[in-house]
């Protein structure tokens, strides 16, 4: 079973601070990690490979240093990796990101399953998975918790707001994977060594089956026009007294705001 996993390198959001003067993100010195949800997608892929055989290919679009995310993925069991990097990709919104990734995946050899994380912890949109699936005309089951394969069909358990749905979809299929699916493994020493030496092809816009006018900032229908810090709460209030007094005051405040 051949599986492709799309992973994104993200700044460790715990460590990002905001410049109070310019309202820009201070990214300098902030470590980059594999998007945590993508580790679950990767674990799902490696687990399926161990069960059914085949190989796992990881793909990322990002600056040259995103290569380290690919090596981290190889160290937990991915077999091959491809890095998409080009100035033309910069500033892409989810439409252009989906377009670019699908232009690369079209060049891959036939695969059975295409996996994504539930969402990226920086952009937080959860839009790239369904977007790529649409470009490649694959059935997409979002929020997958379990995936089993049986004779060309995947049975996928999808987390819904009030429970779960079970879907049968024919290969090739696409899924986004939730955190509850599994616990990502740690890299093994042996794989780490191999990952270090692995040869990772780098593709630019010209290598893809896609129109570079539709990539990056230029190809993106949406534009971020303003970034600001969430407004700080102005009217913070400490309620004091005995527990019963505090409770009474709280009820009073909630009633004032017509919340009770």
């Amino acid at each position: 079973m051949n599986i492709v996993v799309c992973i994104k390198q993200v700044p460790d959001t715990d460590k990002v601070t905001i410049d109070r003067e310019t309202n820009r993100l201070n990214r300098a010195g902030v470590p980059s990690i594999i998007n945590p949800f993508d580790e679950n997608a990767l674990e799902m892929a490696v687990g399926l490979k161990e069960k059914y055989g085949g190989k796992v290919t990881v793909l990322t679009m990002g600056p040259p240093q995103a290569e380290s995310a690919l090596r981290d993925a190889l160290a937990v069991g991915a077999d091959e990796a491809v890095l998409l990097t080009d100035k033309k990709f910069a500033g892409a919104d989810t439409w252009a990101t989906s377009y670019t990734l699908s232009g690369a995946i079209r060049k891959f050899e036939a695969f059975d399953l295409l996996l994504f994380g539930k969402q990226a912890v920086d952009g937080d949109t959860a839009q790239v998975g369904p977007g790529v699936a649409r470009y490649l005309d694959l059935p997409m089951v979002t929020y997958a918790r379990e995936i089993e394969a049986d004779d060309g069909t995947f049975r996928v358990k999808q987390v819904t707001e009030d429970g779960y749905d079970v879907w049968d979809v024919p290969a090739p299929a696409a899924c986004t994977v939730v955190k509850e699916a599994n616990t990502p493994r740690m890299p093994s020493l042996k794989l780490k060594m191999r990952a270090k030496k692995a040869d990772i092809p780098v593709w630019s816009a010209d290598d893809l089956e896609a129109d570079s006018e539709k990539m990056g900032l230029k190809g993106s229908p949406t534009k971020v026009v303003k970034i600001f810090r969430p407004p700080v709460k102005m009217n913070k209030e400490k309620l004091e007294g005995e527990p019963s007094e505090m409770a009474t005051k709280l009820i009073h405040r909630l009633k004032e705001r017509k919340l009770l």
Binding site: T13, V16, V121, D124, V224, I227, P230
Partner: peptide, 13 residues
Amino acid sequence: PAFGGNIMATITC
């Protein structure tokens, strides 16, 4: 909100 709620972004199309 983006970046885990650390920033807000206004977006147009």
